[in-house]
Design a protein around this nucleic acid. Structure first.
Lengths: 342, 342
DNA sequence: CTGAAAGCGCTTACAG
DNA sequence: CTGAAAGCGCTTACAG
């Protein structure tokens, strides 16, 4: 009859009583602090096991001001997030980056530029820090979090002049290489299907392509923007062909966009790469599943997530002299969509 | 100089002082409780805005014993989770199911049958409840959580006799239909590539197929197990053909397994459906991307996640008379892989 | 090496 | 309608 009728969770107090020590001592054992006799430690360990004691996190973090969890914030509607290989990759990277400590991951979704319930939650002391992905326009979220004293790392360069650290792929260099490659294989009417205008990823890839065009003495005038979808890519390609039927090269700001472009090119009777050479971006699973396989700019999405998480955790550990931001290398991978067989 | 040098978060105490009321009153306003004069309410609202006050969640949940967050536990290694359309679907469903309240989702991964850090966390009062997916074998997690008083809903029937509520697709009926369909189109040497033996989903789909075979007077002896991967499916199909080269029908316990089986059948020169008819399970994105398109048992993975979440939240709201478990319907979708064109 | 006591920031009866 | 006070379950100086 020693069992209480209620299945109330045992507290540190009860552990102390069972072990015959003070609360302080129990706390020291739990937190693995020095200065506890072997005898006391054993008694406490035994009591914990007997009572199946688990520390109450709320009480703990009320005093330590630590929650041992970090948030991954994806500024998109939930349904757009899942199934997109980009987010899957980032999530995998974040997940891998956390493995060391026994921190937990809180996943939050929703357009943070138009709804501030996410910001409120984050400022409520619920998490120790946040990795933020897919910011749109001049989203005030990073600044707001920084002002609230919450450590943040952004995946993908944020727009505006907020000084929050970020991790990004070197989109500019990759796109420059893509443009140069199209020039090198002899293309002269080269277009680009750029990404969203309100995201740095769209802007930077466009800038790199422009630079490649300019240095080759070509006019960077064939530009159409698209969202990251096959449908968008298909429509953009159609518009480009309307504007100039003689296009012989296209750089798409994402493989998924390139997939749509390929569809339109096939519909309009253009051979790839003979008539039009196509370069994508990401080297995602899509790049090798198209016919022909896509020449593309490789970036490691998973590494993006892993680096951001590493940066965040390092900051939480109190490390100083951390790089304000990190740029991961990109690399051109040449495949059949730009390769004319002899 | 009214600003403090430290950017310490304002507390309820300070809000009370600024608003000229007691802490109780501020608390009432924050929690939208009745019995506050309009005047007091306004003063508090103003003070909250001025101080940019956000309630401290730890303090709040220490007393209310509520965290306003629920966990989605996936008992798999992180890298296996992302990119698998099944988990993406469940996650989408859970996410959709939570939209109502402003609860947060904590995503946890790791084999809970061999590592109890997840269980410890969940018992630490960090979340109000949990949706658990992809349980293997006789994982003690559900029982442990139930014992700790944490509301749990499992996606996919758990093995063993734990009385936790679960949501599952009607795997048995779907598989029975698959077997009957193969019989109806005249197949006689029908094999199955079953799922993992240590998961109910594997067992139930095998049981359904067996029943279909038996009722047709066929011997249910051509069985090989596989994990949920294309590679596994390919190997299993090869083994089946070794055991009986005259196989003319196959039911694969998942589309991804069927994809592997199709590859092996092509390699061995078997035409689908002429020589071997193939039925998959799930009606995932894969089913319509193969050649030929797959006849398959449709289940709504997203609905699985949504229902489980609904059940959990209803329980948290104190609703009674909730169904102990829910079985969602499955349906056979006939496509080219079992359809012989005249 | 150990314990008594204060305090983290809230909510909740209770009394007015 | 309002406020003073107790208490949630921990950690952390502080004193011994």
């Amino acid at each position: 009859m020693t069992e209480s009728d209620e299945r109330a969770a045992p507290t540190l107090e009860e552990v102390a009583r069972v072990a015959g020590v003070s609360r302080s001592t129990v706390s020291r054992v739990i937190n693995d602090m020095p200065g506890v006799s072997k005898r006391a430690k054993e008694a406490v360990t035994e009591a914990i096991a007997a009572l199946r004691y688990v520390p109450n996190q709320a009480a703990r973090s009320l005093v330590t001001r630590r929650t041992n969890s970090i948030a991954l914030v994806v500024s998109e509607q939930g349904d757009r997030v899942f199934g997109d290989p980009f987010f899957a990759g980032v999530l995998r990277g974040v997940s891998a980056g956390m493995s060391a400590g026994h921190r937990q991951l809180v996943l939050m979704m929703g357009r943070t530029d138009v709804d501030d319930s996410v910001a409120n939650y984050l400022c409520g002391g619920h998490v120790d820090g946040a990795v933020v992905v897919s910011l749109h326009g001049h989203d005030p979220l990073p600044k707001r979090l920084a002002d609230a004293g919450l450590p943040v790392v952004v995946v993908g360069r944020p727009l505006g002049d907020t000084a929050v650290p970020y991790v990004d792929s070197d989109n500019m260099s990759g796109s420059l290489q893509a443009a140069r490659h199209l020039v090198e294989i002899g293309r002269r009417r080269i277009a680009t299907i750029a990404g969203p205008e309100d995201m740095a990823v769209g802007i930077d890839r466009l800038t790199g392509w422009r630079r490649g065009m300019t240095e080759a003495g070509l006019k960077p005038d064939l530009v159409v923007h698209s969202d990251f979808s096959g449908k968008g890519g298909a429509a953009a390609m159609a518009e480009l062909l309307d504007r100039d039927p003689d296009i012989d090269g296209v750089f798409a700001a994402a493989d998924i966009i390139a997939v749509g472009a390929l569809r339109t090119l096939a519909d309009k009777g253009r051979r790839v790469p003979e008539d039009v050479a196509v370069v994508g971006h990401d080297d995602s699973i899509l790049a090798t599943s198209t016919t022909p396989a896509l020449t593309t700019v490789r970036q490691s999405v998973e590494e993006l997530g892993r680096s951001a998480t590493w940066r965040l955790l390092a900051q939480l550990e109190g490390e100083t002299h951390l790089p304000p931001s990190v740029l991961l290398p990109t690399e051109l991978v040449v495949r059949a969509s730009t390769l004319i067989r002899p």
